[in-house]
Amino acid sequence: MADHMKIIYTIIALLISFLFISPILWIGVISVKPTDLIFSEVISLTFFPTIEHYSNVLSSQFVTYLLNSLLVALFNIALVLLISIPAAYAVSRLRVGRKNFMFWLLTLRMTPPIVFSIPIFVIFQLIGLLDNLLSLVLVYSIFNVPLAVWFFTTFINAIPHEVEEAAFIDGCDIYNLWLRILIPIIMPAIVSISILSFIAAWNEYLFALILTITKSRTWTIGSQIFVGTYRVQWGELAAAGIIGVIPPILLLFIIKERLIQGLTLGRLRG
């Protein structure tokens, strides 16, 4: 491809990215604006930035909350992958649960959270997992597993049967088939589902509210204490939002090369 085309595409890509994050950039501006100016000088960009909001946010137990969220989200990914890939394989290749199981999963995703709050609460109280990160890891699979199973099923469906037949003829058993052939092919799906599950768990708020109180509080609950009885601490709220974006973004940045690799890995050559 011509070099100047690459530059033009880069410019377009920059414009698109700017469009998507412009509101977040403005939240960033609010997060460093002195409280008095947030409403009195709405559009001013010439103020002297303050880190007061950030230090207020971080002086509470915010870091612990972030850590809790991180743990929950990561373990949730593990759980989701562990139970969804076998289920998707069964649906796609072994022809079980095609209709009922798959649509039952959709009802799970659809569950109206607020109405579910009291029953869910009672159940976790019975099994003694209130205010425990494990309860969140389990509950978040309610909405993450359905997407994962549907997603993986679609990907496995797209793999020609010949691939497996060839493998079986070569003497490959089902376990090796998975590890050596299926998993690499659906790698893009695994990467995407990991990101999407992470995001869903990272930002979930109602179950986190219902099932936790202090020890396992997540950052979404922690960020909301800046919305008080009547008053809202706008600067602190913005700062908390920005801080809450950093860990996942850092994580994505660290794995970004592998991420793109993973997303392109699965291309079938057959």
């Binding site: 530059i7 930002n203 708020y205 973004i249």
Partner: peptide, 27 residues
Amino acid sequence: YNFYGKSVLFVIIMIPVIISQAVVGYM
């Protein structure tokens, strides 16, 4: 298509989904 900084822009485009919806609401 090919363009510079693809992996960085990929991460940046993800930010709107990552930020807390409640915070976005108030902002």
